[in-house]
Computed example of a mutant assay.
Amino acid sequence: MTHRLVVTRMLPEPVAARAAADHDTRFLDFEAAFEPEIFLAALDGAAAALVTPADRIDAGLIARLPASVRVIGTFSVGTDHIDLEAARARGFAVVNTPDVLSFATAEIALTLMLMAARRAGEGERVVRARAWPGWKPNFMLGTTLEGKALGILGMGRIGRTLAGMARGLSMQVLYHNRNRLHPDQEQGALFHAGEDRFLAACDVLSIHLPGGVATRHWLNAERIARLKPGAIVVNTGRGTTIDDDALIAALKSGHIAAAGLDVFPAEPAVPAGYLDLENVVLLPHLGSATQETRTAMGMLALDGIDAVLAGREVSSRLV
């Protein structure tokens, strides 16, 4: 049976082709801001919607969705943009895209670690500005990651994948989690139950926390002060987990040597204090941005939508 599906953004071509072939699909193709009224109008008679992290599906909007809607698929693992309790209250299923983006996001975390440690962003800007004075023994010295301690905050799929990459750089891996992993998942990583000893041991801190009230500004001025002087901070999780004012101050003072950030609290806006700092690498939320990963995410989201509409169980169902 063909169902009406509303898709809010441009999708990778193979995903769009499948959506068009399998459903009566309407593509809204929002280029910038999500437009709730257009979204609502398009959903009239629709059974499903495929949204993205750039689309805020809050309780007020969910209350206005037509009763025909049975499932909301999100082109993401995170669901900060969807009020799951409101969806549950109205009987809407919500499916996401777990597992398929772990490697790509870990690659970006590793990229940021290397760029921050080796001053790659700064160096690239010098070359583009035609300001490179030529090779000198003390020019733009960074620091190696070899032998350094990588502290992973949140040892989920992405954190564990990054840990494997870091071992290839001869880094020591430690982690702080709500619960200790099974030894098979640790693969030699050292668990720190207490955050004080964990932070003090980190040469590099890589943040992989979910969003939400519980983790908002987890890395605040107090915790930054506990980090080893000269540490590097990397965030590919959620922008809300860092107190940006506190991190900017620490980058200016030198207590934090460098940072690499792929996520921000009010994207696409970036806290202005970062923009003039040479010791911070800023990326435009590239964590899962590979052709392979984004295609896999779209296919998994469609798998979840199709399963719900067919009355089948699906592991990616959150509500």
Rank of each mutant, 00 (worst) to 15 (best):
1 M>T: 14
1 M>H: 14
4 R>K: 13
6 V>F: 05
9 R>I: 04
12 P>G: 04
14 P>D: 02
15 V>Q: 02
20 A>F: 11
27 F>N: 01
28 L>D: 01
28 L>F: 04
30 F>S: 08
30 F>P: 13
33 A>F: 12
34 F>R: 06
40 L>N: 01
40 L>R: 00
43 L>S: 09
54 A>P: 08
55 D>V: 00
57 I>C: 02
62 I>L: 08
62 I>H: 04
82 I>T: 06
94 V>P: 13
95 V>G: 03
96 N>G: 01
96 N>K: 02
101 L>M: 05
102 S>K: 14
106 A>H: 05
107 E>V: 11
109 A>R: 12
110 L>M: 15
114 L>E: 15
115 M>W: 14
119 R>A: 09
124 E>S: 12
136 K>D: 15
137 P>E: 09
147 G>S: 10
148 K>Q: 11
150 L>T: 14
162 L>A: 12
165 M>L: 13
171 M>T: 02
181 L>A: 12
196 D>G: 08
199 L>Q: 09
201 A>Y: 07
204 V>E: 08
206 S>D: 09
218 W>G: 03
221 A>R: 07
229 P>Y: 00
230 G>D: 03
236 T>N: 07
238 R>Y: 07
243 D>W: 06
245 D>G: 08
247 L>K: 04
248 I>C: 10
250 A>G: 04
252 K>W: 08
259 A>M: 09
261 L>Y: 10
262 D>C: 11
265 P>D: 04
266 A>K: 14
271 P>S: 01
280 V>C: 05
283 L>T: 15
292 E>C: 08
299 M>F: 14
308 V>N: 00
312 R>T: 09
313 E>P: 10
316 S>P: 12
318 L>G: 11
318 L>T: 05
